[in-house]
Design a binder for these strands. Structure first.
Lengths: 122, 122
DNA sequence: TGTGTAGGGTACAAAAAAGTGCATACTTGT
DNA sequence: ACAAGTATGCACTTTTTTGTACCCTACACA
């Protein structure tokens, strides 16, 4: 018999929860995926304006990671000036329900916080 | 007319997607929540054994954050040796369906990766 | 000939997150 | 008297993640 039975399916270096969080973790990934799910296709510059606080370097880096992880696909038009379009892959789309629900949960929590703080100042 | 219409509901410092990711982001938070949802109640030491790679410092720190965010509740028994039990709050429980969804997505992806790599070595 | 434009790249610096090592309290068992 | 067990706390270091500043390309237009 095993000395302990606290195994959690996370006995490898990472379990699936860990694995998934790593793939969508990071400061901008959630918002990029969410915006792509709303607009279907966004150009680099559009993403940059949408995620107001992102720097070009971080946007590029994050998009590259999402692309490598096959959550986002990148379509380059060989025009001048250049044009690059980003959209969700099928794998990426499967995450959208999760992100939507998370957003709704966040909305709810933020609303609660707002109500509570307005009660304090009154 | 506005100069651009790329607003995304994220015009505050953070939008709800951002907000939610911050509350459940971090190396161990997802796994802690998921394990608590499976076992209902876990003691500090049990969590430590379950999350094999966590250091005591990080576990304590993460649990404190989850407690402050009201995702997890902490019950101290004034015994010797000390005993502390952790469980999900109602707010924390609301996140479980999404974490489960994420886990299933992760399972599926990892399975795919496994199949692909076994094809390569054959 | 010079300027603007879209979508980047790179080196370096700063900030945030995580890890290490050591210490503590109290009590029961040897 | 002394070690063991449980759940931490704290100072310090390392690692990871972000940010800053500046550079490039290729064509179109004036």
């Amino acid at each position: 018999m095993a000395k302990n039975n606290y195994t959690d399916g996370c006995t490898d270096v990472v379990c699936s929860v860990d694995y998934a969080f790593k793939r969508i973790g990071g400061k901008y990934k959630g918002r990029i995926l969410w915006n792509l799910s709303n607009k279907n296709i966004l150009r680099y510059g559009e993403l940059r304006k949408t995620l107001v606080d992102v720097t070009p370097k971080m946007l590029t880096q994050t998009l590259r990671e999402l692309e490598e992880d096959e959550l986002v696909s990148r379509k380059v038009y060989h025009e001048v000036p250049p044009k690059v379009e980003y959209s969700l892959t099928d794998i990426g789309m499967e995450l959208i329900p999760f992100i939507n629900h998370l957003k709704e949960w966040g909305d709810k929590q933020r609303l609660k916080e707002k109500v509570l703080s307005s009660l304090k100042t009154s």
